[in-house]
Nucleic acid binder design. Sequence first.
DNA 1: CTGAAAGCGCTAACAG
DNA 2: CTGTTAGCGCTTTCAG
Lengths: 338, 338
Amino acid sequence: MSPRPTIHAVAARAGVSTATVSKVVNRIPSGVSAATRARVEAVIKELGYRPNRLGRSLRTLRNYRIGLAIVDPSPRFLADPFTTNLVAGLANHLNSRGFGLLLHGIQPGQLEASFLVRESEVDALCLSLSGAEQQQQTATRLLSNLGHPVVIFQQRPDPSLTDVCFIRQDDREGARMLACEMMKRQPKRALMIIPDVYWPAVGERVGGIRAVLDPEEVKLDLVECDETRSEAIVAAVEAYLDREEKPDLIIGQNDQIAIAAIHALRGRGLRVPEDVGVAGFNAFPFMDFADPSLATVRSRAYEIGQIGGEIILDRLETGQFREREHVLPLQLVAGRSI
Amino acid sequence: MSPRPTIHAVAARAGVSTATVSKVVNRIPSGVSAATRARVEAVIKELGYRPNRLGRSLRTLRNYRIGLAIVDPSPRFLADPFTTNLVAGLANHLNSRGFGLLLHGIQPGQLEASFLVRESEVDALCLSLSGAEQQQQTATRLLSNLGHPVVIFQQRPDPSLTDVCFIRQDDREGARMLACEMMKRQPKRALMIIPDVYWPAVGERVGGIRAVLDPEEVKLDLVECDETRSEAIVAAVEAYLDREEKPDLIIGQNDQIAIAAIHALRGRGLRVPEDVGVAGFNAFPFMDFADPSLATVRSRAYEIGQIGGEIILDRLETGQFREREHVLPLQLVAGRSI
DNA sequence: CTGAAAGCGCTAACAG
DNA sequence: CTGTTAGCGCTTTCAG
C-alpha cells in the first residue's frame, strides 16, 4: 500500500506548481487556464489524490469538525432516544455540509478532563447535558471559555455568556397543553413519575403542568424512579397505589414510563382511561406499543439537532450567532389514554 | 478573546526553545532537567496552553481520531438500538484512550461520495452496514482501499481483504438456541417476521432457525414488513392470520416485532403462549414492556462497539490485527412467551 | 541538557 | 496565467 499522494506528487506529475494544484482542488475559478485545470484534474484522478485536511486546517485554522459533548452519568450515554435523534439530526446536517461530528460521551464532572475539551481541534462545540442540575452552569461556562462558539441544547439561556446559542423545544408549553387536555377529566389527584436522573426538560414540564393544575383543586404528587427499568416504574406505581388514594391521572415524564404505568394499573385491575387517565411525553416510535393509544407531546429531537447544525454553521460563516436562543414549539398527540 | 497560545508563546515566556517545551508537553522523560521542566509547566498553566493536535498530527501522521460510517437508508440512522449501543460502546472506549470518534451516517450508495471517505483525516475506519445486501462487498472493498485499517461490524469475513477485522456476534448460534427452545412445543407451522430493510443479522438468524426446524416437520413462512411502525407489524400478522392457518410460533427479528405480534394475536383472541408461542431477538431494555415476558436472545451491541475500539487501537499500536475475525457468543433469555 | 533547523501538506500573497 | 515563497504548530534529529 503506497502512501497517499500529496499535492507535490500531483504537481510534479502534471508539470505544474503546487499552488496551481491547490487552486484546482479548491475550485478557485480564476487564475488557472482551462487546459491546465483539465490536466491537473486528470492527474488527480489518476493518482487518486485526496487533499489532506490537516495541512489545509493548519493553514486555514478551520477544522471542518464540530464537537458534541453528551454529559450523562450512564456509560450507555446514547440510551435515550431523545439524545439519539438529536445526534442523528446534527450529524446529518453537518455531514451534508462537509463537516464532521466528533462524538464524546462524558461522565458528569469529567468534562474538564475530557480530551474533547482539552485537545480536540474543532471549530465549535455542542453540549447536551443531563446529570445533576448544579453542574449545568459549571459545564456551560467551562465550554464557553474554550474560545470557540458553543451551542447548548435544551437549556434556558444564560445571558452572561457570549458566543453561545441555546436551542430547545418549548417543553413547558407542551406540558401546559397536555395539562389542559387532562383538566377535562376534572381530576382531584394526579401522580407524576419522573426519572431519577436529571434531565433539563423535566423541570420545564413539571412547571407547565403546575401552571394549569390548580393546587387547590388537584393534588399533584411527584415520584422519582429509575426510568430505564420497567420493573422499577411498575414498582413505583404499585407502591403509590398501596400508600395513597387512587389517582385520577398518571403523567410519565416519557412514554416508556406511561406505558409501564398502564401495565401497573392493569395489574391492579384498574382500567385506562376509565379509572385512571395516563399521559406521557416524547412520542418516539415505540410509543405505539401502548394500549390504549397514548396521549403525549411529540418531541422534536431530530429537528433540534438539525437546527443546531444550521445555526452553528451559520455562526461559523457570519462570525456571530443570529440569535441568542431558538425555541421550537411543540404539538399535542391526542390519544385515548386520557 | 486572545488567540490560543502556541508552543512558541510558551517557549518565549519560559525562556527556552520550542523543542524543550515539546518534550515537556509530551512527557518525554529524558532530556529535560527537573528545574526547566517545572518552569515550563508553570508557564503552560499560566498561559492555559493546550497543544494543537493539527500541528502534531501533521508531523506524526497520527490523528487520534477514528471514523465510523453507519450506512443506513434512514436519515434517522441512529434509530436502531443495536446501532445506538454499538456507537456508545465504541465512543466510550475510544474516548477513554484519548481518541475521538467521528460519526457519519451515510445513505446506501453514497459511501464513496461521503466526505468521511474522501477527506477526513482518521487513523482507521469502522463500518456498520445495513441496506441492500449486494452493496456489502462494494462498501467493504471501497473502505479497505482507502489505506487505513478497517473494522467491520456484523459481517462475515471476506478473506480477500487485508488489514480488515470483522467483529460480530454469533447470531446464527443464538437463533439456533432459540429454535431448540421452540421445538419443545413441537410446532407444525411457524411465522417469521423480518424487517423490509436488510440487516446483516437477519440472514444469520434465519439460517440458525432453519438449521433446527426440519422443513418436513415445520412449515416456516417468512413475512417482511416495516419494523419501525407497529401498525405495519400488526397488519402483517393479521393478514397472515386471515390468509393461512394459525401458526404455532411467531418469531420476530427483534423484540419490537414480537411485542407487536403479541398485540395482534391478542386482538384476534389468541393467547400467548397457550395458543401461539412468540419469540424475539435483542433483549434491549424496552423488551420488558412485553407481556408475557419475552423469550429472546440478548444482543451484545455495546460490547461489540467496545471490543471494536480495543481491537482497532491494538491494531494501531502493533501495526496489524491480531485476528481476522472476532465472534461474540450469545445467550438465551428465557421468557414465558414460548 | 538544550536549541537550531528541517519539514509534515497545504494555502495565500506576491512576483514574474 | 503560473510559480515562488513563507508560514500554520508541532516533533524530531542532530549539534553544541
